[in-house]
Design a protein around this nucleic acid. Sequence first.
DNA 1: CTAGGTGCAAAAGGTTTGCGGTTAA
DNA 2: TTAACCGCAAACCTTTTGCACCTAG
Lengths: 149, 149
Amino acid sequence: MFCSTMSRVEDKHLIGRLNERLSNSGFRFTPQRQHVYAVLSRSGDHPTAEEMFIRAKQEMPDISMATVYNCLDALVKSGLAKQVMVERGAIRFCPNMTAHSHFYCDSCQGIFDIEVPVADGWQLPKGYEAERFDLTIHGRCPECNSWKR
Amino acid sequence: MFCSTMSRVEDKHLIGRLNERLSNSGFRFTPQRQHVYAVLSRSGDHPTAEEMFIRAKQEMPDISMATVYNCLDALVKSGLAKQVMVERGAIRFCPNMTAHSHFYCDSCQGIFDIEVPVADGWQLPKGYEAERFDLTIHGRCPECNSWKR
DNA sequence: CTAGGTGCAAAAGGTTTGCGGTTAA
DNA sequence: TTAACCGCAAACCTTTTGCACCTAG
């Protein structure tokens, strides 16, 4: 099995983090997980599992769908990716682990990472203990807005 | 086909709103939609389409799964219900159309309506035009918190 | 009258699982 | 050495679709 993915200089720093995070969460470090992580990390969008499968296959032709699901699951549980659930159908994955929210364009169905100044300490009802939050803002993206309807 | 649903006094005020909202959105007013709306409205939780099917069948035994999906879709498009997407698997439906957010308990997987003071006017990046937002806070609910891990 | 809705059953879409063989630690 | 992982294919769960009949407007 040939895989040139990690020979990229710009990906080098990711490997160490990946290995550490995986083992911290009780997962093994495998070539497939390394590759799926690399492919997701260099994605500028929010691919579905199937899109990840197609992209991963380009450099690792023998990888299977089940393995892609397995790898994505390991990445999510290791804190290296997020699941994004904004529309019906396939779940999407987000490699951006910095604090951010999502914008969903009702016109073009695009998903965009956005930074919005959000008060982190929500005033929750008594007894609730917040761990994290997911904020998705719906509307029209700049591109679709420039068309003016 | 027997359906006692709308004979309830407390549901009377819902019918007018339903009829108006449906026709405003280009949908017909049917007994099935009336019933699904009544069942959802009196739900205190966030049922899946299948849960709605089971509940709706109790008073309308001949209703089909496809019709439940059709009705729920019409309700969502008419602004009488919201879809809630917080976990993998089936989409859930929320009859509460007041401004509120959701709390997802990572421990018991429960979904709760909560009111959090949220600044409605987000400071969005240039070009984005917000229509609405979905906020889900993850953590532990009061019930699970009382167990202390 | 007729466009839209209903029930049924089959298909499609997305994810999970079981299994025999392989491998990271 | 061995528990975890891999690839493959079948199963599973949720949602959509096609069709013949029906009905709200």
